[in-house]
Amino acid sequence: MWPDNWGVVSLFLKCAVSQWVLTPQGRVLGFNYPGVEVVMRHNTPLVPDAALAFDQLQGMEAAARGVLNG
């Protein structure tokens, strides 16, 4: 992993623990963005550029959603 990516990957892992929104059928819709904002606010040293980190998180979210939903 590139050192420049470690902050956003760490952030993704912190969000992935508890910030998923699920359908009643159990499929993943995506992140609970208000919860993601809280995680980001409490981990500012990981991601000095919040806008870039959020954009990267959305890319990781889309990729993970495809894997999690099969």
Results as ranks from 00 to 15, higher is better:
residue 16 A to V: 01
residue 24 P to E: 11
residue 31 F to E: 03
residue 59 G to K: 05
residue 11 L to F: 06
residue 18 S to M: 10
residue 51 A to K: 06
residue 52 L to N: 13
residue 36 V to Y: 01
residue 7 G to S: 07
residue 41 R to H: 13
residue 36 V to F: 04
residue 61 E to Q: 07
residue 23 T to V: 09
residue 70 G to T: 00
residue 27 R to P: 12
residue 37 E to Y: 03
residue 19 Q to A: 11
residue 37 E to A: 08
residue 24 P to Q: 08
residue 58 Q to F: 06
residue 56 Q to R: 06
residue 34 P to C: 09
residue 63 A to S: 10
residue 52 L to S: 11
residue 6 W to I: 09
residue 67 V to D: 15
residue 21 V to N: 14
residue 13 L to S: 13
residue 62 A to P: 05
residue 16 A to H: 11
residue 13 L to K: 10
residue 20 W to T: 05
residue 41 R to D: 14
residue 51 A to G: 06
residue 14 K to G: 14
residue 31 F to I: 11
residue 42 H to I: 11
residue 69 N to Y: 08
residue 5 N to G: 06
residue 33 Y to M: 12
residue 53 A to Y: 02
residue 38 V to N: 05
residue 61 E to G: 03
residue 51 A to D: 12
residue 4 D to S: 06
residue 33 Y to I: 02
residue 66 G to E: 12
residue 37 E to T: 09
residue 63 A to T: 01
residue 68 L to I: 00
residue 66 G to H: 08
residue 28 V to D: 06
residue 57 L to Q: 00
residue 5 N to F: 04
residue 70 G to D: 07
residue 56 Q to C: 08
residue 66 G to S: 05
residue 2 W to Q: 15
residue 30 G to V: 08
residue 25 Q to M: 13
residue 42 H to T: 09
residue 38 V to K: 04
residue 45 P to Q: 12
residue 6 W to D: 15
residue 10 S to A: 09
residue 54 F to Y: 11
residue 25 Q to T: 09
residue 1 M to G: 14
residue 41 R to Y: 10
residue 39 V to Q: 04
residue 8 V to L: 07
residue 22 L to A: 10
residue 10 S to L: 08
residue 9 V to T: 07
residue 37 E to H: 02
residue 65 R to M: 15
residue 1 M to L: 10
residue 45 P to G: 08
residue 66 G to R: 04
residue 32 N to C: 05
residue 57 L to P: 01
residue 62 A to R: 08
residue 19 Q to I: 02
residue 23 T to G: 15
residue 57 L to R: 00
residue 7 G to K: 02
residue 51 A to T: 05
